[in-house]
Nucleic acid binder design. Structure first.
Length: 455
RNA sequence: GGUCGGAUGGCCGAGAGGCGAGGCUCAGGACUGCAAAUCCUGCCACACGGGUUCAAAUCCCGUUCCGACCUCCA
């Protein structure tokens, strides 16, 4: 069933219409976090992308089923001493699964703060080992994979005819390049083959028994196994960050398709571009990794990040800055204040078909926001403004109806405010300013308006 | 080296042959005891060199610069 939503498909290199392969729901898989650290705002941009897709589909009258994995094992570089989970475990001197559960919890907290709606399921890699092993066995039977002399299982890249379709890479060009040193261990039959199952070697933690000996799964196989298990024989849409295009998604596609006799499992691949922060790619080495908590500690509403990200299209690289976040924060506060005012006008129905067109056209959230700004300034009635903003908040999810001021005040604050009002009435402005500072110290910003002070 | 994107005012960013998007900052003004907020006004840009055209930020050719990916990454 067609949905009317067009998105940029990486493999087709053009816009394609999202279709649901069954009548009820669009099936979406989004590559989730590797829970060895907190997600930074760049990671969150990708998670916001899948939320925007889900919300837009709902907005257009369709339902969506989202599954997002939690990688808590097996995400290693080729040098498998460097498993991200175990490296962090050694660093923190704690059990790797304890760490994983903790960062997984943080991940859910961050999503909730950004109003990212919950996926239907968040399967963990560590709890899907049997699924992966079954898939690997199947791939061996089909001769797409083989057991190496080292006890690891490898996927045979050459056995998959359309390898490279997503990334544009060709197997011949993937020979050891100028950038990376290659240390062939001799177990792979072809340089571009990759591990589905890694023999434990010296590892003693996070390993499982298998038909090929104790070991642990490769990174790519978890997404193949989980997407097919939880979403079925067709995945309508696969979402992830642009850097996953290769090798992760290329390899995932090869594994999945090979297991179903080269039928195409995933109909569309959608990738979110990277986020820079203050002009540079976020990385630990550059020291410019920004977490959602960093925003909160600066007194910004986490939803300011949501707005700032939506001001750019998901597939353009964007440079996020503190000043952009502060601007977004101000905009949200102004909108909430205005909406509280507009809410007093009579309720009416409004036509929001233009906004549907913008969203359906490859999630043009920048244009949606632009139009809302124009409406805000326009001659339209308060009723129209209210109805339109509230309708669009179903997708924007900026909590635009949230009250801007707190109702409950401590007795101390109440006394200070009363005293200040009295001082102002007596034109004792020195005392008034002193009291304003005291109020500020307990977290209350006082504003003087023609109708008296407010906070 | 290969592949793909860019270059727009102080900053961020839409637009894709003819009407100078918008936001932020800044300056001036209104309002205000002062702040803050709000409102008004101002700031006339499209990397460079050619070309096509009545008309180019937009199309073509060339140049320079920047970024991404090329088996760590959202």
């Amino acid at each position: 069933m067609k949905t009317g939503l067009f998105l940029a498909d990486t493999k087709a290199r053009t816009l394609l219409e999202v279709e649901s392969s069954n009548e009820s729901s669009v099936r979406i898989y989004c590559c989730g976090p590797t829970v060895y650290r907190d997600a930074h705002v760049g990671n969150l941009r990708t998670f916001l992308l899948s939320d925007l897709i889900v919300r837009t589909l709902n907005f257009l009258g369709h339902s969506a089923t989202l599954v997002q994995n939690i990688t808590d094992v097996g995400h290693m570089s080729d040098d498998f001493e460097e498993d991200k989970m175990l490296a962090q475990s050694q660093l923190e001197r704690r059990d790797p699964f304890t760490i994983a559960r903790e960062y997984e919890e943080h991940f859910h907290t961050d999503l909730a703060r950004l109003n990212i709606s919950k996926a239907k399921r968040y399967p963990r890699a560590s709890e899907s080992i049997e699924l992966m092993q079954a898939l690997i066995e199947h791939l061996i039977e089909l001769k797409s994979a083989y057991v190496g002399e080292d006890g690891s299982v490898y996927f045979s890249a050459q056995s998959f005819p359309t390898y490279g379709a997503i990334s544009g890479n060709r197997l011949d060009d993937l020979k050891p390049g100028h950038r990376y040193e290659y240390t062939e261990d001799g177990a792979k039959r072809f340089h571009a083959d990759w591990a589905l199952w890694k023999a434990a070697g010296k590892r003693t933690e996070m390993i499982w028994p298998s038909p090929w000996g104790a070991g642990f799964p490769g990174w790519h196989i978890e997404c193949s196994a989980m997407s097919m298990h939880f979403l079925g024989e067709t995945v309508d849409l696969h979402v992830g960050g642009i850097d996953l295009r290769f090798p992760h998604h290329e390899n995932e596609r090869a594994q999945s398709n090979a297991s179903i006799h080269n039928r195409e499992l995933v109909s569309m691949w959608v990738h979110g571009e990277h986020l820079l922060f203050e002009g540079r790619k976020m990385s630990k080495s550059a020291g410019n990794v920004v977490l959602l908590n960093d925003l909160i500690n600066k007194g910004l509403d986490p939803l300011a990040l949501r707005l700032a990200l939506m001001e750019n299209r998901y597939r353009s690289q964007m440079d996020l800055t503190w000043s952009a976040l502060e601007a977004a924060n101000k905009t949200i506060l102004r909108w909430r204040r205005n909406i509280a005012q507009w809410a007093l006008a009579p309720r009416i129905e409004v036509d929001i078909s233009d906004f549907k067109v913008f969203l359906a056209n490859d999630l043009d959230t920048p244009k949606v926001i632009l139009q809302l700004r124009a409406l805000e300034k326009s001659e339209a009635t308060d009723s129209q403004k209210y109805a339109t903003f509230i309708a669009m908040d179903r997708v924007l999810a900026l909590d635009l109806q949230r009250r801007t001021q707190e109702e409950e005040l401590s007795t101390e604050a109440r006394e200070l405010l009363d005293a200040r009002e009295l001082a102002r009435a007596n034109k004792d402005f020195v005392m008034s300013d002193v009291l304003r500072e005291k109020l500020q110290a307990i977290g209350i910003d006082v504003l003087d308006t023609p109708d008296g002070q407010s906070w």
